[in-house]
Amino acid sequence: MQSSGTGQSFASPRRSRQDLVSAIVSGDRSAEAELVDWFARGLAIILSRIVKDHQTVEDLRQDSFRIAIERLRSGALRDPDALPGFMAMIARNVAIEHLRQRTPGALSATAPDPTGGPSQYHDLARKQNAAIVRKILNELPQPRDRELLYRFYIADEEKETICERFGLSALHFNRVLHRARERFRELFEKRRSGGGIVPPLDAPDR
């Protein structure tokens, strides 16, 4: 399965990349809104991989769209097919620039959290998110699988190291991860469709 390489493969886009870029160049505000609709979730993923705080991610996403629209209006993107790469590059640069301005001492032992605490909504959503994971962990057939998830996702141990430690095959390792991911996805979608609060997934821990 492969993405088509055009905006039409996505759920919401109404126009091709070429039409969208042309419309933005010509000052069509609805095209700008469509651009935001199209790339909002993806930019959040890119930004939150670099920046930890969800509010900062949101601010940087706005900055990314502002810069992107300004550049698109000015005709900076010659090849509309390169639109996703163009958007990704802007988001990366915005996030890196934010970090550069913020901290020579990001690793300082006394560096304060400049962004404040999470919002109540965010806090509640994350609690619900944690409850889903708790359920998944309780469903795991073997306690070893919990440890596997922990060591891979949190303690950053390498797959090979974990497999060696537990005498597992790579296949079994992948299966545990796959099942956990899919189960989370299933419960997450179920809650979304049930009208529950959906965790702001653009915000990683801390």
């Binding site: 399965m1 993405s3 390489g5 055009t6 905006g7 493969s9 996505f10 759920a11 790339f39 979730r41 993806g42 930019l43 993923i45 939150s48 996703p84 958007m87 990704a88 994350r126 609690k127 998110n129 944690a130 889903i132 994971v133 708790r134 998944i136 962990l137 998830l149 922990y150 996702y153 949190i154 956990a180 991911r181 989370f184 996805r185 997450f188 965790p199 997934l201 915000a203 990683p204 821990d205 801390r206």
Partner: peptide, 23 residues
């Protein structure tokens, strides 16, 4: 950025990681 399926998988995996951290 142009693939809803991967986007969905990325979001759910991130949710899983975030949930693990909160345990």
């Amino acid at each position: 950025l142009d693939c809803p399926d991967c986007l969905s998988r990325l979001e759910s995996t991130r949710g899983l990681i975030d949930g693990l951290k909160q345990q």
